[in-house]
Design a protein around this nucleic acid. Structure first.
Lengths: 102, 102
DNA sequence: GCAGACTAGTTTGCACTACAAACTAGCATT
DNA sequence: AATGCTAGTTTGTAGTGCAAACTAGTCTGC
């Protein structure tokens, strides 16, 4: 058993809400806040704070503008975000292997 | 995309320290506290509190006794724990599938 | 033209959590 | 008897996830 395979999981990505956000962004290019809100099923508040966190650590980029005089927030995954996600996927695969076989 | 596949992850098992404990117990039958401490690399305090939590929800069983006049704590996974772990493994497999392909 | 409802998010407050440092209780050694 | 060791437990703290409440501005009905 290799504890570090499990304990080394990137907590930033491990959080389900953030994993979901990153996964959607990874496959969707650029996305609007409202779209992501519906897509993810997360509340606005929850989405907003995870968005901030992901932006702060540079895994996503956020661009604010206006459309029809209303605020519009667009999100996209960064290269760093893609790497973090891929790395997490690999970590997860390792964990799966360590788990008792079916 | 199915948010519930990700958001529905069992947080009790999702926590890396607890996933590690359950995984070790699943493959090891019965185990002593000290063994698990070394095996997992967790601090005594951390291990103790996760142990309590897992016991409280019935995923593991804990038996306290004495050996050579010293306290001895033995842990084993319960049937419920095995089910939870297997269920989590399945959830994780679904998540892996939802993740962007390599 | 302004009261009220709507839009698009952000901030705040709270309940919970993970973790290690500090503690406990008994045993062994000197 | 004082010190240290063993085997854990409790406590304190910093951090987290979440939705309710809030903000800032826009639109609608009257």
């Amino acid at each position: 058993m290799h504890p570090e395979a499990v304990l080394g999981l990137d907590r930033l990505v491990h959080e389900p809400a953030r994993l979901l956000i990153l996964t959607i962004l990874a496959s969707a290019g650029e996305v609007e806040f409202g779209f992501l809100e519906k897509m993810s099923g997360l509340s606005k508040g929850n989405l907003s704070s995870h968005m901030s966190k992901l932006e702060t650590v540079g895994l996503i980029g956020v661009k604010k503008s206006f459309r029809a005089k209303r605020p519009l927030t667009r999100l996209r995954i960064t290269a760093k975000g893609r790497k973090a996600l891929e790395n997490y996927r690999q970590q997860l695969a390792d964990v799966m292997n360590a788990l008792p076989k079916d």
